[in-house]
Design a protein around this nucleic acid. Sequence first.
DNA 1: CATTGCGGATTGTTCAACAACCTAAAAATC
DNA 2: GATTTTTAGGTTGTTGAACAATCCGCAATG
Lengths: 226, 226
Amino acid sequence: MPEEALFDTNDQSLATKVAERIRQMLIVGAFAPREKLSEIQISTKFGVSRNTLREAFRLLTSQGLLEHIPNRGAFVAAPGEAAILDIYRVRQVIQKGAVTAAGVGHPALARMRDLVLQAEAARSEGNWQRVGTLNMEFHRAMVELCDSPRLSSCFDLVLAELRLVFRQLEDTAHLHEPYIHLNTKLICLLEEGRTEEALSDLDAYLLKSERSVLAALQRQRGARTK
Amino acid sequence: MPEEALFDTNDQSLATKVAERIRQMLIVGAFAPREKLSEIQISTKFGVSRNTLREAFRLLTSQGLLEHIPNRGAFVAAPGEAAILDIYRVRQVIQKGAVTAAGVGHPALARMRDLVLQAEAARSEGNWQRVGTLNMEFHRAMVELCDSPRLSSCFDLVLAELRLVFRQLEDTAHLHEPYIHLNTKLICLLEEGRTEEALSDLDAYLLKSERSVLAALQRQRGARTK
DNA sequence: CATTGCGGATTGTTCAACAACCTAAAAATC
DNA sequence: GATTTTTAGGTTGTTGAACAATCCGCAATG
């Protein structure tokens, strides 16, 4: 169980802030997969009323980060194989659509370039968690190429779920490391407007990433059932 | 203000049912664009407590159907030009991605074929509202071609917003009528596996539809400001 | 006409209460 | 001893009252 949280003052409602706080805790793995989030315990820990917490839970359920079961409570979502397959299907459609729509010189390209450089620096420091985060930011920036708040929002939901998947795995360094040079190649292709080649490379990346994640999950599950 | 609602008994929580009920009312235009949904009035009308209603509002806000402004309340979303542009960007990416991923013989194709037949029947009865609904169902079935619950879910949110747009317009018959024969052509191409031609036709449809909706909204706004 | 102040209404949050539900443990049965 | 049934306790879902904070409309003032 995590420590109590403090909430700063801004124009957001308390329920929104509680939801965001829990969201962050979910992403960093402060709760176990399928862990039950007891309203009484969490509202006490956060120092908010149960009603406020329930509002926050509604927001998080909408985002796919919690699974709400009537009369039993809210549980940390634990995406399995079916979810991973679907997540990558979404990525295929959205990321390829974004790359197809991209215009040369789009500001998101500079952001992607910067993220690749940061990932290289993080790798030489051996900071694999940072590499993973930057890799995800890279792909998120890719979706920005099509300038659609709704698509970016949809992609964010999927990314958050993917982070939950990674949190179920013990060692994710090898999931991110091979992709730095792929990202470097991708950004070069995009900057030069070579869309078809970029799509082809992206397709290969997504397939490879999906297989790696599925394999890691199965190894994890195999180790757990023994 | 709408009438009171009754809620049947099933395994859903009351908040979820209230949210769904309000969602339906939004889609059929029972509330005006930008109308403020007073917690006190609506909770009284529905016979539920304010806390339960607030949970429902959280769900609807997540779906983009309500706009929640802290300390001021919840308002019916009223998508404008920027939203319409984005909605069609989303449609471009998701629908084209679904068509690209479609396999010949996919069950959704039969569903699309059936919907086109129903739309033709509705047109000969002069039931334009029905034609519009069936047209939207047709495109929703198209997204089912890629078998992704998350993409379908994302598309549903966008469709719901599009319905809010249509509800702002006085006469939408001419928005749907020309597309029956286009849908008929599309389903033929898809059934024959002629994906490139289907993509080209879909692209033309989406552009044309976007322009029609934007023009109708501007006419509506022009008429309102005089 | 613009600005300020006030009052009323509403929202956001808290708390207590209670019915309904679920789960684990204990008791009964085979 | 194993299985089924019952019971008790804890939690969830909902309600309603209360109150602080915020907003908005209206009246008064410059």
